[in-house]
């Protein structure tokens, strides 16, 4: 099993390396260079030359790639063209904000989704299930900006309970962030819970119909133990990958929600970077998001291995 995990890790690194190449080459292939793109109509004369010198654009592409990759390996992402400061300080606080938002939504939403999924499966086709399932479809079909707007009008305009918009400095202290993210978290949860809950429900229904759950009933076990020990671990297996994808989606910056609530996360940063033609920033963000997806998929794979004794021991036996 160790070998398998090592192999997965290596594979993840290779994937990231390929992504870094693709990102770099894609930018190279664009007509002109980063400085021309950024400066636009002013891209001439001294200004252009200075910019090129500052961002080492006069050197050959492979030299720059190696320098970039070396920097990445040491945690140095490069320099933003627009803001003329290191990218870490541009991305860092915003990524922190995104993490706070995403992880809060995940930490509240995933257990809730599993809980609701199990309930819906246990009460299959009864009123509670119909209610939970239709609510899930409702929130899956409505785009976040509508949900967000509705929530604002209800919770902050009508009831006045929660702030309707986030007003904070990018690097506000964590406490302050938490005070403001109630509605964005709720918006994200509604969508995510709906997806995961439906997956858990259908896989739980399959598992509940299996011989071993029937056997656990006929062994005289209590309903609670049947569900928690016998059924649930087996029902979660197929849902793990979906959960990982959802976390990755949250951590990659949820643009629409950030815009609706004016939240300073990396979703908005990405859009701004593209609008500003700040290519080093775009590159760094692309790579960051790729790492998040690769990393979470890796974690999902490992979690599946740990939860599923069939995979675990068969691999172990083959060694």
């Amino acid at each position: 099993m160790l070998r398998l995990i090592t192999f997965r890790f290596l594979f993840a690194f290779v994937t990231l390396w390929v992504v870094s190449l693709v990102v770099f080459i894609a930018v190279e292939l664009l007509p002109g260079d980063a400085c021309e793109a950024f400066l636009g109509q002013m891209a001439q004369g001294q200004r252009l030359d200075n910019c090129r010198v500052e961002h080492r654009l006069n050197e050959p592409a492979y030299v720059r790639y190696i320098a970039w990759a070396q920097g990445l390996a040491q945690g140095d992402l490069g320099k933003s063209i627009k803001r003329s400061k290191p990218l870490e300080s541009v991305i860092g606080p915003r990524f922190r904000n995104t993490l706070i938002l995403g992880l809060t939504a995940a930490a509240l939403g995933i257990p809730l989704a599993i809980f609701l999924g199990v309930l819906a499966a246990l009460w299959r086709d009864k009123k509670a299930d119909l209610f939970i399932s239709s609510a899930a479809i409702f929130f899956m079909t409505i785009p976040e900006f509508i949900t967000g707007t509705l929530l604002i009008s209800f919770f902050s305009v009508y009831l006045g309970w929660l702030p309707g918009i986030v007003i904070m400095r990018v690097d506000a202290p964590i406490i302050e962030v938490f005070g403001q993210i109630g509605l964005p978290v709720l918006t994200l949860m509604l969508v995510m819970v709906a997806h995961i809950m439906r997956m858990v429900r259908s896989s739980m229904i399959d598992v509940l119909a299996s011989d071993f759950v029937m056997m656990s009933e006929l062994k005289g076990l209590s309903k609670t133990r049947q569900v928690l020990r016998h059924a649930l671990p087996n029902a979660l297996l197929p849902a793990i990958n979906l959960i990982a994808l959802n976390i990755a989606w949250l951590m990659g910056g949820v643009l629409v929600v950030e815009v609706v609530f004016n939240y300073p996360g990396i979703g908005r940063l990405s859009v701004n970077a593209i609008a500003d033609r700040d290519f080093p920033l775009v590159q760094a963000l692309a790579l960051l998001m790729a790492s998040i997806y690769v990393g979470l998929n890796l974690m999902a794979d490992i979690a599946t291995l740990l939860l599923n004794p069939k995979l675990r021991t068969r691999q172990g036996a083959a060694q």
């Binding site: 299996s210 011989d211 071993f212 759950v213 029937m214 056997m215 656990s216 006929l218 020990r229 016998h230 671990p233 087996n234 939860l307 599923n308 004794p309 069939k310």
Partner: peptide, 11 residues
């Protein structure tokens, strides 16, 4: 049970 392989909980 009929099929013990399926009647024992795999996890």
């Amino acid at each position: 049970p009929q099929n013990a392989g399926q009647a024992l909980t795999p996890t």
